[in-house]
Amino acid sequence: MVQTVISVAGASADCPEWVLIDLQGSLETRHPVPLSGRFVGDLHFTQKDVPILIIGHHILYGKTVHLEKPFAVLVKKERSADTSMETDQNVSGTSYHVKALIRRKLLFKTRPKPIISNVPKKL
């Protein structure tokens, strides 16, 4: 049987807390280019703490949600070939590490509103 270990950082009490952005829909570019390094959008918060995300010509209003069941962010580690020689065969080559916990997310589930700009000037 394969045993895959999920290890937890030493000082896990200080496990960092990350935030998740949950978009009902998906982000894409018109041309199939890699997303790496590209700009997504501006995230604002109103004085009443409502998150506003502006992506391209669209404005999305969201809300901050406390997750009833938090998430652990796991990072997969593949063991390199030379070290795996020494290890137990039954322990799989991959292991996971708990990198962070996520207890809150910004949920954008409403239909995005287009920004109507009859402005000739380019942004």
Binding site: L20, I21, S26, V40, T46, V73
Partner: peptide, 12 residues
């Protein structure tokens, strides 16, 4: 849905 993992994002 797209779930974006954003470690540095701060909430309102």
């Amino acid at each position: 849905n797209d779930l974006l993992i954003t470690p540095e994002v701060l909430i309102g």
